[in-house]
Every structure is written in C-alpha cells, then in structure tokens.
Design a protein around this nucleic acid. Structure first.
Lengths: 358, 358
DNA sequence: ATGAAAGCGCTAACAC
DNA sequence: GTGTTAGCGCTTTCAT
C-alpha cells in the first residue's frame, strides 16, 4: 500500500538538441528545423526526429529559444500584499480575478507569472519587465501608489492595472465603476429608510475612495450631509474590520445602514452589529431611520447568496474583468494605445438590505 | 480629469550590458562583475556602474543570465481544468491554496508560474519541466490520472502533488487525511441520529474516493450498509451538484444526512433540500432518522461560518498545505527523497449539522 | 583591477 | 535537403 519508491532524485543532465542530432545522425540545424516543422526538411527525417525527441522527452529549451528569438510569452500578474500586516492574498475577489486571468492568458497562449510585491513598492514590479522575465504586467489594485504606477507607465513598462480611473493617470486601468457602485449601494439604503449610513472601507485606497465619492453623492442628493463619525476606516481585512465596527457600535454613534467595500467587510459588519444586539436588516421606523441596520457589500462573491443574511451587494464582473485586462495588455503590446476604462457594475438585492421592507 | 496620455507604446530597444559598459567606459566584464557585487572591481567603479544602471532602469536580462548560469528559480503551479465542462478555476479551496503557494514561493525567492492543464492530460505539465520553464511542478489535485503522475515521477520530473495517498504511488503527494475526513463527517452525522447518509461527490476522483472510504468505514462501524442509491456523483461544480441533489430529492429516496466533498457542494445540497420542502438540519426523530437533513461540508473555506446555516465542515489546513508543498518540492530539488504525507484534518461543528440537538 | 574570448542552448542566414 | 557559422545577452576563465 505504501509508495514503492517515492520520487528519488538523480540529477541526470538534461538532453539537448546536440544529443538528439547525434542520435539521429544529422546536424543540429536539421533537428531545429524538424522540430519547428519546417518544410525544408525531408518528411521522413522530420518525423524520425520528432519521434526520437518525444521518446526521450526532449523539449526545446525555452530559455535558450527565447533568448535567440528575442521572444517571451510570459505575462506577470502582480498581487500586492500589505507588508505591515504581512497580509496574504486571501480576499476571494482577488483570488478569483487571478483565476480568470490565468484562464484568459492560457487561452491566448501566454504563460502567467504570479508575483507578490509589497503594496508600498508597486514600482518594484517593473523589475519583472526590465529583467525580461515578463513582457508586461497586470497589477491587481492601485493601493496607495498611483504615483508609482504612473512612473512605471512613464518608463514605458507595459502595464494594465485593475483599479479606478484617477486624475492625471498615465497608465491603463480597468475596473468596476466604483463611483456608481458606491452610489447604487447608498441610494438603495436611503430608499430603505436609512438616514445614518456608515461607510466601511479605507478611502485612502483609490477604489474605496471612488466608492466613497458615490456614497457622498447619494447622501447629498438626498439632502444628507456626510458625517465623518460614520466613516469607519478599515483595510480589506476581516479582523480589523470587525474590531472597527465593534468600536463604532460601542461608541454610541447612531447608524442604521452600512456600505461596505467588500463582501467580507460586510459580513464582519453583520456580526459586529448583531453582537451589539441589533438586527440586520431590521425595519424602517415611523420617525425615520431603521430599527436595525441594513448592510450592503461589494464584489458579489460567489457565496454572497449563501450567507446569512444573503448579501445585498454591488456586483463586479470578475470574469469579464479578467479577459479585458488580458486583452488590454496584449493590445498594448501589439502597439495600440489602450485607454483606461470602467466596467459596469450593478446592485444585487438580497436579504442584508432587502428591497420591499415590511 | 481624464488621463493625459494613456500608455502610448514605442518599442525602444531594451538596454543591455554592452550599453552600460560603453556609457561607463569600461568593458562588459567589469559591468558584470560590478553588478554582481564582485570585490574584484574597484569600489568606486562599482558604485558608479550601479548608479548608472539604476538610473537607466537597467536590469540584467534574466533569460540570458539563467542560460549562462544554468539556473532557474521558477516553479510551476499546475491547476488542472475540466476540458469538457470548460470549467475554470473557481473553487475557493483551489484558489486559496494557490494564493498560499504564491506566498511561500515568494518568501523563498522563487518565481511562480501558474499553469492550467487539461485534467485528462496532467502529463502535459511535464513539458514545463522538460522545456526548462520551471525547475519543478506543484500539481493541485490528482484528478483521474494517478497513472500519469506516476509516469512523470518515473521520468524524473520533480513533482509534488496536492492529493491523497494512493496505492503504487511513485510521486510525492501531500494532502489532507481524506479517509479520516470522510469518517469524521459521517460519524458526526450518525451521532446526530442520521441513518440514511448521502455521499455527495465524485468518488472517481482519488480525494473524493478516499473520503468515501472513510464514509463507508463509519457506516459499517455503525452497522449500516452503504446504499448505492445514496451516492450522488457530482463534480466539484455547483450547477451539476444542485441538479443531482434535486434529482435525488425528486426520486423519493429517503435520506437524512449529506456528506459533501466541498463546502460549495454542501451549500448546493442545502438549497436543494430546502427547495424540496425539508429543513436543514432538522431534528432527530423518535423512531430513528431525522425530520430534516443534516449536512456536512469539506474544506472549511473562510466564509463557511457566515453561510446560512453556518457549515459544519471538515477543516483542511490550507496555509500549512501551501508551505508544505513548497518545502517538499524544494527539498526534492535539493536531492532529498521526500515521502508522501497526510496533513491532519478536523471537524468544525456549526449549524448545518449541530452538535447538541434539541 | 580590468579586458578578451569562449560558450550556455538555440535559430537563421548563408553555403553547398 | 542539409551542414556551417554567427550570434541572442550574459558570466567567467584566463591573460595582462
């Protein structure tokens, strides 16, 4: 039952083209041609060489081939991490966009290098390009370093960024329409009778900042002045979010709605609010406001409909985004000038902030 | 507000060492030495060259360097896909293990190539090694091709596989203890009074097959014969699982518990059962069995505690697994013989199959 | 302390 | 149709 011989290792020098040539009794050039399917080489010789190579597991060394051909089919996908919290990739949104990009790149015949860089030094990712490891970069998120991304673009690093559209932007970004997303979420809460809506997220991050703009727009349109006490700063991370919401609840500041910057944050808000003895989503009160707290998430991750309560959330088109990011980068590599673009988002109404309220 | 000049492209030949040499007025050898921090080169010259390189964004071309040095720091992480269903990476479990591996590899100074291969041709992944793209492979899942993995190992491809321990195994695998996992889940349901426990998963897949072994063990130990009618074959995919469970409910076959092979499958089971008008988890009945259906998931994905009902599930140590996979591969590359190993799993009891039942 | 030259594994003129 | 040769961008003897 136990393994016969678990993976022993003997280095065994890797075969190379010269070996194949010798074994086939031809020159290297012939092997090279045969393997590339050139019609300059005799049909019979070609298949013989191909067989030989296959039977020996010989494959052209791509490092050498790339060097010679000056080509490279590798795209780097850069997922920044927060060095302080040593926070790893874990948000399902990031993970699934990475999955989608992997698929899109594979479909198009490119390799994908998955790289982590310190979110404070996004510009370190340029190294991947300058060193020739990758022909271009897809960066997931702008974090706090719009400037570094601009510098990279100015240095002609082929670059596409998942994120929002910012002033003075030199690079190509693609992302959900954050302002609209923030506005939709907030409008929905206002329509439910919420009057004191919390914004949960870190508005220092461009995406969250834009969502906050939408939030403010919606409030103002409803004649409500944004209250700084209702801004709960929290990174895209669960523990911190929970603590921040607990603090808010303990502070006694009144609120009856939450616009969260991710579904994960929304879930933390749900638990914090319930731990404080209030209901989610509660009911509108005759005097205005709500008996409980209605909560809207962001991203619409696959399990959002299975949570308790099911999350009302702003849907981001992950699969589309992945394909668009890849195509944008490839177009750019093809010499096109690719303009930044926003992808449509829409609100998905579920239980955490229902539509018709009793 | 709109971008000044979105990422225009001018090819601009990449700098190379000869350029730096010329600009610095020294020979290439000196530049090479300077950049590698050799003490053979004058302190002053060295810093001068380093500055120059930095200011011009020059980085050594790694393709060329690797060729010359015969080195490579790239590990391929292979995530198989189902070609028939064109099913993309989407299970949060796979995604998060990939995230963890990315972190572990980055920490150790390796690059990670994320590759997708047809689950029917896992052996195609060997190409990544033979072509020199990667020094070794981490394959996520055995799928239906234990044999191909064995062949790869026999061909001396450095290889570590996330998966179960199988008979006649030549490669190094690491994975949760699936038999125990399946047994724990089933024992828990039996303890709750379930007598007709469904196994939801595709036992053709080694991991699911092992879990089924545990399931059968637990049933037998309780004096229950496994009923083939209670085996619902479903891939690790949501739509199919839902349909299969709907069919089971419609068939009239009696059941009062479900052991699912992933949390996603468990959630689908919850919905199917509820759509059929039954409760999850229900209550034990005086005559044996339960009024509703108790359901246990597998993986313990991060949101499992936030679902409705919160999922009782078998916890897999994802973060640990990622690190262990990486370390196993690196040890193997270092010449060590690394034996397959199982990682501990444990049951996390939540609402979908509670502990003390009223 | 620095330079000249050979070669990592491959391809593409250019010969024949 | 096949072989010879000169590099792709780099490192490293071996000279000096």
């Amino acid at each position: 039952m136990s393994p016969t011989d678990p993976a022993r290792k003997v280095p065994a020098r890797r075969l190379q083209m010269a070996d194949i040539a010798r074994l086939a009794g031809v020159s290297m050039s012939t092997v090279s041609r045969a393997l590339s399917g050139s019609h300059l080489v005799n049909e019979e010789t070609r298949t013989r060489i191909a067989e030989l190579a296959r039977s020996l597991n010989y494959t052209i060394n791509l490092g050498a081939q790339n060097l010679r051909l000056q080509k490279n089919q590798t795209v780097a996908v850069v997922v920044p991490y927060d060095a302080q919290s040593r926070q790893h990739i874990s948000d399902p949104f990031f993970l699934s966009i990475v999955g989608g990009i992997a698929d899109a790149l594979t479909d198009r015949g490119y390799d994908m290098l998955l790289s982590r860089v310190d979110a404070e030094r996004l510009d370190n990712a340029a190294q991947l390009f300058h060193s020739g490891k990758a022909i271009g970069l897809i960066v997931i998120g702008q974090w706090r370093h719009h400037d570094q991304l601009n510098d990279m673009a100015a240095a002609r690093v082929p670059l596409v960024v998942w994120g929002g559209l910012l002033p003075q932007q030199l690079y190509c970004s693609l992302g959900g329409d954050n302002v609209t997303g923030g506005r939709l979420a907030t409008e929905h809460l206002l329509a439910l009778g919420c009057r004191r809506v919390v914004f949960l997220g870190d508005a220092q991050l461009p995406e969250a900042g834009l969502r906050r703009e939408g939030y403010v727009q919606a409030l103002r349109a409803a004649g409500i002045d944004p209250d700084p006490a209702l801004e709960v700063v929290s990174p895209f991370q669960t523990i911190a979010a929970r603590a921040a919401m607990d603090r808010l609840c303990a502070s006694g500041v009144a609120f009856d709605g939450v616009v969260a910057c991710s579904d994960l944050l929304a879930l933390q808000a749900v638990h914090a609010v319930r731990a404080a003895g209030r209901e989610v989503p509660g009911h509108p009160q005759p005097g205005g406001g709500r008996s409980g707290v209605a909560i809207v998430g962001y991203d619409d991750m696959p399990v959002a409909s299975f949570t308790e309560p099911p999350l009302t959330t702003v849907h981001q088109p992950v699969a589309l985004a992945a394909v668009e990011l890849v195509d944008a980068l490839l177009a750019m590599l093809g010499g096109a000038a690719v303009a930044p673009r926003m992808l449509p988002v829409h609100l998905v109404v579920r239980g955490s902030a229902p539509t018709a309220d009793a």
